[in-house]
Computed example of a mutant assay.
Amino acid sequence: MSQKKETLPLLLSLILTISLVFAGLWFLMERWAQITKQNPNNPSPTNSPTQSISNNVINPNPPATNCNIPNLPQGIFNYGGSTTWAPIRRDVDSVLKSNCPQFDLRYTQPINEKPGSGTGIKMLIASQLAFAQSSRSIKPEENATAQAKGFSLKEIPVAIDGIAIAVNHNLNIPGLTVAQIKDIYTSKITNWQQLGGTNLPIIPLSRSKEAGGTVEFFVENVLNKDQFGSNINYIGTTTEAIRKVAITPGAIYYGSAPEIVPQCTIKSLPIGRTSDQLVAPYQQPETTPSECANKPNQLNSQDFRTGNYPITRNLFVIVKQNGQTDQQAGEAYANWLVTPQGQELIEKAGFVRIK
């Protein structure tokens, strides 16, 4: 009797142990099946280095966004170039990056040179950029350098800009012709009295030729490739130039219209092909200095678009035609800029629509 009583508890303990073992095995098999289903190429639940990179850098299934751009590649794309493009990089490209985070644009400056259109194109040819932003057209020698490396360059116009002339608020002249601007910057006209103003020496300011596309465009199209005069005061940036013009009665400076026209400390002059056809770079009526802080002058978009304003230019996306991802990235970016949304944002950034 005593032996039967001892056998029963032992039997029950054995049954319980076997049940627990089977339950544990069932749990482990179910868990293994779930892991394998989530990652069929890697049944191990431990994150491998490849898996970690995949999670943090390249997302094959990005979250749904407002991104609706055909042929937009995914990845990190370096770009840069013209300083004139700074408002677009700030106000327009930021929207693109927000809508399409998988298209990661990274502005890249040159290491040992000043940023500008020419430097950007040089970096593009050297494969340091995926595409470049330029305020001038491609030069034949740049395309020749690219072709020697097995590809060509293409320029895609996306906006209209103009060159505005900045002078001190106290300068009392109605405006300048393009020929007079050329004579000032080639030292043929050196006193404002020669242009109907007061007896005051002219102090022409300019960035260096190496500074970028605006200077190159000015030399090519306003100076007709003539050399700067000996009295030019070279200055580093447009910001520095505006400050100097504001405190120097005889100073004059040229720059991208969106950088000049809204400024309150200087005034921008009407210019024309002839003295009886002067066109203001700002919308009429001109804002007075006392009103400027709350109501800055706006670009004369209509005359810029029609060409009535005599010194206008296109802004270009420069694309490497090599049939690779860089070309795809540059073309997709340019195509987005000429969409209704892109053109509206460009206009808000201070430039003129091309469409």
Rank of each mutant, 00 (worst) to 15 (best):
Q3I: 15
K4C: 14
L12C: 14
S13G: 14
E30K: 15
W32Q: 15
A33L: 13
N39K: 13
P40L: 12
S44H: 04
V57R: 04
N61Y: 10
N66Q: 02
L72M: 11
I76V: 14
F77Y: 05
W85G: 15
I88K: 09
D93I: 03
L96I: 14
F103W: 07
Y107P: 04
T108N: 01
K114Y: 15
P115L: 08
P115H: 07
S117T: 09
K122N: 07
M123G: 09
A126I: 13
L129D: 08
E142K: 07
Q147H: 12
Q147G: 12
A148W: 15
L153F: 07
E155T: 05
I160S: 02
A164V: 07
V167L: 06
Q180T: 06
I181P: 01
K182C: 10
S187C: 11
G197E: 04
P201E: 09
L205T: 05
F217L: 06
L223V: 01
K225Q: 14
K225M: 05
R243W: 06
A246I: 12
I247S: 15
G250P: 05
Y254E: 03
G255F: 08
E259M: 03
V261M: 06
K267H: 02
T288I: 11
E291N: 11
A293M: 09
N300D: 14
N308E: 13
P310A: 08
V319A: 08
D326M: 10
Q327F: 01
A334N: 03
V338T: 03
I346S: 05
A349N: 02
G350V: 00
I354S: 01
I354A: 03
K355H: 00
